[in-house]
Write a protein that binds this DNA or RNA. Structure first.
Length: 135
RNA sequence: GGAGUCGGCUGAAUGGUCGCUGUCCCUGCGGGGAUGGAGGAAAGUCCGGGCUCCAUAGGACAGGAUGCCAGGUAAUGCCUGGGAGGCGUAAGCCUACGGAAAGUGCCACAGAAAAUAUACCGCCUGAUCGGCCGGCCUUGGCGGGCCGAUUCGGUAAGGGUGAAAUGGUGCGGUAAGAGCGCACCGCGUCGCUGGCAACAGCGGCGGCAGGGUAAACCCCAUCCGGAGCAAGACCAAAUAGGGGAACAGACGGCUCGCCGUCACGCGUGGUCCGCGCGGUUCCCGGGUAGGUCGCUUCAGGUGCGCGGCGACGCGCAUCGCAGAUGAAUGACCAUUCUCGACAGAACCCGGCUUACAGGCCGGCUCCCACC
């Protein structure tokens, strides 16, 4: 029963450019034709969502609003397994042509993938350098 | 009823569940409740204002905008009314609608010629020469007509062109012609009348300037300081740095809060000397992240009355109608219908322009039918 937890208050969002910068600096990615989602553990007890929907990807403001609302709605309805992650969602060019149900399925896939991927290296959360380039 | 034209309105509805956000109330500070929450274009950012900061004695130049007249307005490049020209049977629509008798530039092709005014073709009188024809008479002369060539002149009527050629039509006139003369139209100018004016009407006078292009330069008239809410005002961490105060090991001096000497720590170095740096606490101002204000109550909407042809103005009553800030105004489900367009506030207004599935209402015009 997650109904009581399915809210989206201010604490569940990324609010400053510093918070966005932290995610961009070192992130686990998940991408498809519609979205790219960046993810990084935040050490908090809950998840936080940030949106980066550029004017370049979606020309009309009405389209940008629709995508952002859809993403927030999907994020809000996720069970608490996302807890402890900062997420930044970026829209790609083709999104406006798709209808809501298609995009909703895409978003759910992203959430699940990122939960799995971030679970593995999060053992120590020791932020090993991403430039591990192994030859 | 059909075709057209002008103007206005609308922009799926109802219920349930889960959210976001402004305001108010309650609270055990976890939250709960009530209520408000995109547009006619919120768009393009093309004009005009308010507001804020900066600049500013006054003027000139440059640059830009506007361009028939009058009115409306906070203001306009907007709107209303009027005038002129063009289109349409009409309702109605369109107009960058000052100046080409200031100067400069450009004008392909065609055409005799494209702006200088007449050269060329053509037309016509005369002169000379040649040819042909017929007339008169004293047979050798006289005086003619027509055609051709050359030439002195006269012409601007005509010359396939072209977007455009010294205004058009008619009559007279002439060797041929020509505003050469006359009438009407056109143009210019002067006067009168009507109108605030643009302009219109009427009358007189002048035979009459001379292509187009000014969204080519330009001339004339009028207007214009710059930047924009990331404007601007305030609060203000951490870190670094600036200024100041107090305290900080020992000894000595004196004008009694400063000076001098020696110590101390760190760096350099193998070590000494030497050289460089100097601690703690508090305060002050600048300033970054961040936050607060600006931020929605107004050139405000609606109704009624009055003034005005109208845009609009005045008065009274009444209503409170988004205010976010990584940025709210949504998602899902069900039912119904004519299956739903363009599109999302970001300081605020007034315009213009552009986009738009459909639906509704009204005025006017033309045509057809019927009474």
């Amino acid at each position: 029963m997650y109904a009581g937890d399915a809210r989206f208050p201010r604490s569940r969002r990324l609010l400053t450019s510093a918070q966005y910068g932290r995610v961009f600096a070192q992130a686990v990615k998940s991408g498809d034709a519609y979205f790219t989602v960046l993810c990084r553990p935040n050490g908090l007890g809950h998840a936080r969502l940030g949106l980066a929907v550029s004017r370049k990807a979606l020309r009309r403001a009405a389209d940008r609003n629709r995508i952002k609302r859809l993403a927030r709605e999907s994020f809000r309805r996720q069970p608490s397994q996302l807890a402890g992650l900062d997420l930044v969602l970026m829209a790609r060019r083709g999104v406006a042509e798709q209808d809501n149900s298609v995009l909703q399925r895409s978003l759910e896939r992203h959430w699940q993938r990122l939960v799995k991927r971030c679970a593995l290296p999060s053992d120590g959360d020791q932020e090993r350098p991403a430039v591990e380039s192994s030859y």
